[in-house]
Design a protein around this nucleic acid. Structure first.
Lengths: 115, 115
DNA sequence: CTGTATCCGCGTGGATACTG
DNA sequence: CAGTATCCACGCGGATACAG
């Protein structure tokens, strides 16, 4: 990475870029805790997201191989989404990140109180 | 996190948001591998960054407690930046993220070749 | 039900010029 | 040397409407 001066093409950076899209980590969290979910269920769990953005995020996650899309051409069509093995690997690391973030938050609150 | 429906206020999300600012991870990487650096040295190592953006990123990192700013009011002034203990904790997790990103990249290339 | 198609407003990054 | 001050352009997220 030290020799990669173009941050656009750094693998970790594009991964971060993907995760940073709004709603993205929340989608991963929902699919991880609730299991397989249909498009409409996901949308219902995120009342304020628009169809456009939800589709967008899911497509990106799919391209990155983090989410599996199952399309059943019934009428009306049924589409369900689930996490792939990759996503589960990621969840472990993200869990570490989350623990750090929470710990720091507490530390900051402590320092704010004693100040 | 499951009960945190507002992604704006999720600690991990704001941490991701910070890391995602362009150049951010690269700044952390440079300070980690090169050690303490002065403003001008950092800028020289990132030829395409503007003073404005570099200052911006450093201020954010400073507020998050990831970077220490040392200001010497000499004439001309000398300002140097270094990583804090927090940043080193973060580097471990980021290292994990980087390994995953690299591995996936290789896997994807493999699949692209065999297709 | 599961999306596309548009349009729009805002934030963010980048370029340039200037300062203590 | 180490920034600040502007200005601009672009992309992204959000809202709305519509379609297979």
């Amino acid at each position: 990475m030290a020799d990669e001066h173009d941050h656009q093409s750094c693998p970790m950076d594009s991964l971060l870029r993907l995760l940073m899209g709004s709603w993205t980590t929340y989608i991963l969290w929902l699919l991880g805790s609730e299991g397989t979910l249909r498009f409409g269920q996901l949308k219902a769990l995120m009342p304020k997201i628009s169809s456009k953005v939800l589709t967008e995020r899911l497509r990106h996650l799919e391209r990155a191989g983090l989410v599996h899309r199952d399309y059943r051409p019934t009428i009306p069509p049924a589409v369900s989404y689930s996490l792939t093995e990759r996503a589960h690997e990621l969840r472990e690391v993200l869990q570490g990140l989350n623990e750090i973030a929470l710990r720091w938050q507490k530390e900051d609150e402590q320092r704010a109180l004693s100040a």
